[in-house]
Design a protein around this nucleic acid. Sequence first.
DNA 1: CATGAATGAGGATTCATTCAT
DNA 2: TATGAATGAATCCTCATTCAT
Lengths: 202, 202, 202, 202
Amino acid sequence: MPKVGMQPIRRRQLIDATLSTINDVGINDATIAQIARRAGVSTGIISHYFKDKNGLLEATMRDITRQLRDAVASRLKPLAQASTETRLLAIVEGNFDDSQVHSAAMKAWLDFWASSMHQPQLGRLERVSSRRLFSTLAAEFRRDLPREQARLAAHGLASMIDGLWLRAALSGEPFNLHIARTLTTQFIRQQLAGTESLRKEE
Amino acid sequence: MPKVGMQPIRRRQLIDATLSTINDVGINDATIAQIARRAGVSTGIISHYFKDKNGLLEATMRDITRQLRDAVASRLKPLAQASTETRLLAIVEGNFDDSQVHSAAMKAWLDFWASSMHQPQLGRLERVSSRRLFSTLAAEFRRDLPREQARLAAHGLASMIDGLWLRAALSGEPFNLHIARTLTTQFIRQQLAGTESLRKEE
Amino acid sequence: MPKVGMQPIRRRQLIDATLSTINDVGINDATIAQIARRAGVSTGIISHYFKDKNGLLEATMRDITRQLRDAVASRLKPLAQASTETRLLAIVEGNFDDSQVHSAAMKAWLDFWASSMHQPQLGRLERVSSRRLFSTLAAEFRRDLPREQARLAAHGLASMIDGLWLRAALSGEPFNLHIARTLTTQFIRQQLAGTESLRKEE
Amino acid sequence: MPKVGMQPIRRRQLIDATLSTINDVGINDATIAQIARRAGVSTGIISHYFKDKNGLLEATMRDITRQLRDAVASRLKPLAQASTETRLLAIVEGNFDDSQVHSAAMKAWLDFWASSMHQPQLGRLERVSSRRLFSTLAAEFRRDLPREQARLAAHGLASMIDGLWLRAALSGEPFNLHIARTLTTQFIRQQLAGTESLRKEE
DNA sequence: CATGAATGAGGATTCATTCAT
DNA sequence: TATGAATGAATCCTCATTCAT
């Protein structure tokens, strides 16, 4: 029963099925047949909408990076006039948004990270996303800190965010938002409070 | 040219070939044929020494976790009487040992991490390794800090270490040891210096 | 050239190719590639229709057991009112139907028998078929003989049928229907005629 | 620790291991490695004593046919002066000797039968054995019956013996010696008693 | 006489992709 | 638009055989 205007519906359906499949068996054991079955469509449909399997995976990765971008952007929007610390914490919160820390999302990110090491197309997407986090953080820190110090702080905070995420994913346990908040808050305050004594030695 | 006592030699050969192949094409595109060719042996030998491909991958992961363990242990050994900070920095340095931060090692870790999400056997190895880092750090922090604070600090430092590593791997650029040292040193000192004002608010 | 409704056609095609291949090289040297080539299709199609090689072999065995069942049933059908002897002879004739005694069929049976000793799935099929012959014969004998004697006669006749078959298969020569008829007819008449003098001594 | 005069010991060891392996996994899944392990020797030894796998299988088949021959011969030996019936029953008993009707032996026979359909060497051995049974039986019947009738009786008795054997093997249950004796005794007596009334009609 | 390391051909299976309907 | 039949390359694994020691 072909219908018109199915494209956005089918794409959504298939991306969701892809994420769900990745959650179950991982990106490498996710077969087109499995994804199609889960989406309730035939295998042929995938090439119709995404050209090939890579196209589907790329679209899926694009989807979760967009979700992350949105999660951050929506938290930052109402805080245009807020303090640097507040805005930094909002960015952190965005990265720990529900959409990003549930099991399926973390598995997908980890799988995409690994895949991106060997697939240029995915690598590009990953790099854009990774740099965006750094740039966003660096821009905020720059409001209160000198350039190099801001970059260092941004690098540190981005690493901590990703590290917290990574360890949560690998531990197999639910993401502990409380601990993540405590540690990132500490880090942000210390960076903004100045670290003269430490920097002296370098 | 069969000989006796080849086992350790062959195993080493094959694990090295596996790491090298993972570096080139990733764990999922690493075929038995490719690994065997690189090791200069026939494919059949792999099942002879490792039962099957999974056995080889597991042995390879075991190998890099052992390297990490050794890198940390060898740095810690001569510091039995040293200060907590010195010992913590030694642990960090161990994690950033050459054997761990060269491109091939980082790719292998990332691939193993992703695989460990879906392969129980690898997951177990990963969890052991991940927990060891946390325990080692927590034990050191515990010398100067109360229990809960030590655990928090350990979690934070472990996350930062893994995060720095992860972002380096994904960036495709060489690991910047200088920045990593600066950030981890900062973190350690601040944790050991006490964070009363921050903890008050929680 | 994909079409709809190909399933029954392809299954038939593949089962026939399997029987033909078994006839040529035996069940153990029958490779998927060979069967597929003979059927004029690709190897992949087998898993499409039969899941795997075992599925195909099972379906093939199911097919020849069904042929045997049909051969017996069709002979028995018009003989609802006939004498026990006539009906027993019809059952025997069914077992010696052309479909069962040509070289390919006999080889297939022998191969399946051997395989069924070590493959539970095939064993089950074999047992059903073997018991059906016994039950059918026993039911007929029961019309004229006491229970235990009927069972003994059924056992003996079934053994003679299978033995004639087996020795024909192993001899490599065409099945000698005349001798088979003579011997089974003798057996049936003697059983039905009563064997008091013999049974006395046991 | 090489020794002299090991040949007969090793051959016996390996043939027993082969039978045991066939009993467990069937002739087709019996690998050299498995057989060697079971015999407690290395794989290389097999080619040393039997040239190759086929040589071992052939020797094994030769072994069980010899056992059958011996079982019959030893029973017949003391009965040089006995009646035809007694001698025929002795032959039957030989075929149902313990060495022939235990599970492992029946599986081996069935496997060899199937293999012999496609392996000339084994086929030859099988044919010799099969014909020997027929000839032995025919010779006995010939003492009391005309030539053709004797041959028919021999064919029938051989078929019944093999059929009883086959059905026992396939049933998975222990060979029921009592039933086998009853049926074969019946058959022999009836053949020897004359079957004029039956033969009239052919 | 005996070992077991090493080979490599051969087979089953999987799966992305294509395409007639 | 949508299906699912069909392909066949790619991969892992098994295993008989060889042979240096």
